[in-house]
Amino acid sequence: MSILHTVNKSPLDRTTLKSCLNLAVKGASVLLIEDGVYGAVSGAESTQMVQDAMGDVAVYVLGPDLKARGVDESRLIDGVKVVDYDGFVDLTTDNDTVSAWV
């Protein structure tokens, strides 16, 4: 079994990213969408938490939501992969289950 988690809130506003990372098994994927994309940036309070998790889980970020917010990809934590909506769909089919941290 493999699982994709989606997180749509900034980690500086809500704790859903933290909850998600606590409950993500090794090998899980985490996709940051909507305001969740702020969790993908480096130099933020949340950066260390995400970097620590990246040893066990793959972190993706939705490019269109990054662009909408003026967040340049150069600001992303190393190793975070940018996907578009097609990539989002592929992540849901590559994994067996999708868990949304709304």
């Binding site: 699982i3 409950l23 098994v25 289950t97 868990s99 941290w101």
Partner: peptide, 18 residues
């Protein structure tokens, strides 16, 4: 624990969130 719950969550077919 979180670790136990993570394993349980990983075994699900359908996850509903509200």
């Amino acid at each position: 624990t979180s670790a136990e719950l993570a394993e349980i969550l990983d075994q699900q077919d359908v996850v509903l969130s509200f």
